[in-house]
Amino acid sequence: MSVFSFAFLILSLAILAMSGRLIMGPTVPDRVVALDTLNTFVVATMVILGALFDSIVMVDIAIVYAALSFVGTLFIARYIEGGF
């Protein structure tokens, strides 16, 4: 379906633009915000790719990626916070 490939193109461009903020963010929390948003985009992109290729495995990986990236973000936030 060509609509989904168009959506995939736009989302990939959004991910590229997001890595700009990831590189130049002035403080560490800025970079974490960019990383979190990038993870959300990756999940959305995987769901759309799953529809594009008609494969369920993509969506399963998207679920696992959402859970793991959430845990990763929490750990980075805990690290910035300092002191447990």
């Binding site: 929390p29 915000v33 979190d36 959300t40 959430f70 973000t73 910035i80 916070e81 300092g82």
Partner: peptide
């Protein structure tokens, strides 16, 4: 998503 946002905001404020 909102939980991660809350964690980042708190970490930013504490740092």
């Amino acid at each position: 998503n909102p939980t991660a946002a809350h964690a980042i905001a708190r970490a930013a404020h504490k740092s």
